[in-house]
Design a protein around this nucleic acid. Sequence first.
DNA 1: GTCGTTGTCTTGAATCATTCAGGTTAAGCG
DNA 2: CGCTTAACCTGAATGATTCAAGACAACGAC
Lengths: 144, 144
Amino acid sequence: MKDTDHPPNPASELRSAGLRVTAARLAILETVRGGNHLDVETVTSRVRGRLGHVSFQAVYEALHAFTAAGLVRRIEPAGSPARFEGRVGDNHHHLVCRVCGRVTDVNCTVGEAPCLEPADDAGYLVDEADVTFWGFCPDCRQGS
Amino acid sequence: MKDTDHPPNPASELRSAGLRVTAARLAILETVRGGNHLDVETVTSRVRGRLGHVSFQAVYEALHAFTAAGLVRRIEPAGSPARFEGRVGDNHHHLVCRVCGRVTDVNCTVGEAPCLEPADDAGYLVDEADVTFWGFCPDCRQGS
DNA sequence: GTCGTTGTCTTGAATCATTCAGGTTAAGCG
DNA sequence: CGCTTAACCTGAATGATTCAAGACAACGAC
């Protein structure tokens, strides 16, 4: 099982998602995939390091489009700006450090696609489960 | 099992949490408990309806203090402002409507305190699990 | 290869929730 | 009845995100 299923190449992924292939978007997509739950500012600065100038709006729009297309996933731990990750499609969750904000992936153990359905859906048509574990990461739990 | 365990009365709850008892804070606490995942603006306007004038900062500070004291719980579904609820201490989760933003409580079925621990804690000291189910509420799934 | 459509990118301003600052009021203990 | 300090007030600032409107360029059609 591959980490995430990346078809042929990023360019064709964009195309088959109905998006145009531009240097900026390729760099944004690769940056998100190469990074670890990056926020918009970090994505932007890394992309700028590669390409020169790219506007914040271009990054926001691209990330929004990618999220809608299912190419990336957006997470937003309470109190922190939105973060993006390349791992999509597998039902995994997150550990978030209350001190430093670090985010770490956790696989869900309870079976294959656990936590995917609430006990009682109250009539809702549920399409996603978002599980966040809050605590203190190895580095930050020292001083406790 | 009671819905939520409310000791003697709100005033003594505040006191035993080390907080002073003021008309504003009593009204804020009761408003949150009587409401359904209210945001700060709604809490403020309801409290104002009762008491006359109360500043936003007073409400923010009170809600922050209550949250720290464990009297209320703060949730923050991605993309929406913070919301507060009076149900605390029982491990329950939330259904959030993608269209209207409505939030509904769900009890966790998988045992008593489920989803409380991740499969692999990656060295984190986990103290809370935050589970949000995204979907379409009964009212909003009609047009689909 | 050229053209046209429209998705993408740019600059600049605006919005919204939340927080910070500093000073005033009043809860509750001695 | 004072004192200490939590609580509250007004007003301004911050930071992430979005809106607006025009310029540019990807890519399918010709």
